[in-house]
Structures are given as C-alpha cells and as structure tokens.
C-alpha cells in the first residue's frame, strides 16, 4: 500500500542522506522524494512516497522520528490530502501531430512552455494518475525527454467542524 509522508527536517548538511541512508540501509522503498526549503530557512520540507504494509509504515515513521534531525513526520495519506506532481515533457510535434499535441494539452490543461519546429515542451501539473494518463497518450506520438518532480502533498483542512 502506498503512503505519502510529509517530513519536516533540520536544514543541515547530511540530513537528506541520513534519511535516504535509513531507507536503503533498512531495505525500505522510496518511490519518490521531493525536498525544498520552508519559509523558516532552518527547516526543509520533504515529501516522500513509500510503500509497505502497516507494520513497515509504522517502522518507517518511527525510524524517521528517531533521526536527530527529523522534527516531524506526518503520514498525509492517512486522511484527505492533496497531492501534486509536475512534469516537463518534450514531445515530437511534426506536421500532423502538432495539432494533436495541442489538443491534448487543452484537454489536460497543460501549458506549452517551449516550441521548436519539431517539438513542443509541455508543462503539466496534477496528481500522479493524471501525469500517467498524459504520458500514456503522448507515448505513441513520441516523448523525447521527460523530467518529473516527484510528489508533493498536503493534508486537507477539515471543512465541517
């Protein structure tokens, strides 16, 4: 079962390798990892997608908390949450497919961020399954290059008190 963990960690050298080292050393799985500074420059925010049964996830969360540099770990996938991933996709766009690619962009609300005579570079944002769908559809046209960010996530606020 997939879990998305949100981790607040001290922004110190080596903090990230402590976390990745923990995963590799203990045989846990990292499906995606996304790190950036927070408003407080002394902290980094890390979104990590992993998988495992409830015991493994429990261990992962405890082991993360055990690291001296880790401030807080939340399993955002325990409740309602928003997740987004971004990708830049360079697609072949020649003659007959040029229009097709643009149509697809329109349907999926992607943005074209770079145009060349033979390619479009598309920016797409959304949950992982949306990216997956777009990639599936673009594949037959020809993807020349792909860069993905990995998932970032946030818990939804409770709407009704």
């Amino acid at each position: 079962m997939k879990h998305t963990l949100s981790v607040l960690v001290e922004n110190t050298p080596g903090a990230l390798s402590r976390i990745t080292g923990l995963f590799s050393g203990r045989g846990f799985n990292i499906e995606s990892l996304c790190v950036a500074a927070t408003l407080d420059k002394t902290m980094s925010h890390l979104t990590l997608v992993t998988s495992g049964d409830e015991y493994i996830i429990e261990q992962i969360i405890k082991q993360l908390n055990r690291l001296v540099d880790v401030y807080k770990v939340v399993d955002v996938s325990e409740g309602e949450f928003v997740e987004r991933e971004m990708a830049l996709i360079k697609v072949k766009a020649e003659d007959e497919t040029r229009a097709e690619v643009l149509r697809m962009c329109d349907i999926f609300r992607c943005k074209v961020v770079d145009v060349s005579p033979k390619t479009y570079t598309i920016e797409i944002t959304g949950p992982e399954n949306k990216l997956k769908a777009v990639l599936e559809l673009l594949k037959p046209i020809g993807i020349k290059e792909l860069a993905r960010t990995g998932t970032i996530a946030m818990q939804r606020e409770k709407k009704i008190k």
Binding site: P13, G14, S17, R18, G21, L22, G25, V68, D69
Partner: peptide
C-alpha cells in the same frame, strides 16, 4: 568519516 559512520552513529557532525 561522517558519511561512513552515518548508519552506525546515533548522530554525527562535521
């Protein structure tokens, strides 16, 4: 050595 001992120390510093 900080890299080497990361998995076998409780914490370490350079």
């Amino acid at each position: 050595i900080v890299g080497i001992t990361r998995p076998c120390t409780k914490h370490n510093y350079l």
